[in-house]
Simulated scan of single mutants.
Amino acid sequence: MKTPKSHKLDIIIPAYRMHSQNFLNVLDGISEEAALQRIDNKTNHVVWMAGNYVNTRYGMGQVLGLDMKDPFDDLFFQAKALDHTITYPTLEELIVNFKEVSPLVYQRLLEVTDQELERDFPIGMGIPFVKEDVLNFVGMCIGRADYLCGQMGLMRKLLGLPGMKYDLIPNLDY
């Protein structure tokens, strides 16, 4: 494993890498058609969940100093509500974006310093016990990824697919 400059990320980086594995595993075998299904018109569909997941990675990258923007930001930024009148991107398009942004964010996670992580970053959540800084924003992104992966895992079962496998993709280095 590569060593990060900041030991504050000793827990974050393995979680990030596991999320990369899980994201690809949870989407494996879901057809484009199935990915747009909602349960009783009450749930988000898998495309929305995957899009928000990828958008979270772009957001993390921006906060860490990367100059790139999610091409579907207008659909997913800050977990914008699903709009059934909108044509969403395909899972294939979202996976392409995921594979573009993820290694760059991973590299930034390895390079970021304690000083950069301590920089104030207004999150706007108003939680008195959470300091609004870059480190806590990154931590919240990790939590969001856990949540979304769990939701997609549940949707797999509701769509009649087997549960997500935890197979590792050996050459996935982010």
Rank of each mutant, 00 (worst) to 15 (best):
I12E: 04
I13D: 04
P14G: 08
Y16W: 04
H19I: 03
H19M: 10
Q21P: 04
N22F: 10
N22I: 12
F23W: 10
L27C: 07
L27Q: 04
G29Q: 08
G29K: 09
I30K: 05
S31C: 08
E33D: 11
A35D: 04
L36D: 04
R38M: 08
I39K: 09
N41T: 09
K42G: 11
T43Y: 04
H45G: 02
H45Y: 06
W48D: 07
A50I: 05
G51V: 01
Y53A: 05
Y53P: 01
T56I: 12
R57M: 13
M60G: 08
M60F: 11
V63D: 00
V63E: 05
V63P: 00
V63K: 01
L66V: 04
K69M: 13
F72K: 01
D73S: 14
D73I: 13
D73A: 14
D73H: 13
D74R: 13
L75W: 01
L75R: 07
L75I: 07
F76L: 01
F77P: 02
A79E: 11
K80S: 09
D83G: 05
D83F: 01
T85A: 11
T87R: 13
T87P: 03
Y88N: 05
Y88P: 02
P89G: 02
T90L: 03
E93P: 05
E93G: 03
E93F: 06
V96T: 11
V96L: 08
F98H: 06
F98Y: 08
E100L: 14
E100G: 10
V101H: 01
S102H: 03
S102V: 07
P103L: 06
L104I: 08
L104C: 09
V105E: 01
V105N: 01
V105M: 09
Y106G: 03
Q107C: 05
Q107T: 09
L109M: 14
E111K: 11
V112P: 01
E116I: 07
E116S: 12
L117N: 06
L117T: 08
L117R: 04
L117K: 01
E118D: 15
D120W: 14
P122Q: 09
I123R: 13
M125A: 14
I127V: 14
I127D: 11
F129V: 15
V130P: 01
K131E: 15
K131V: 15
K131W: 12
E132Y: 12
V134N: 02
V134K: 01
L135T: 03
N136S: 10
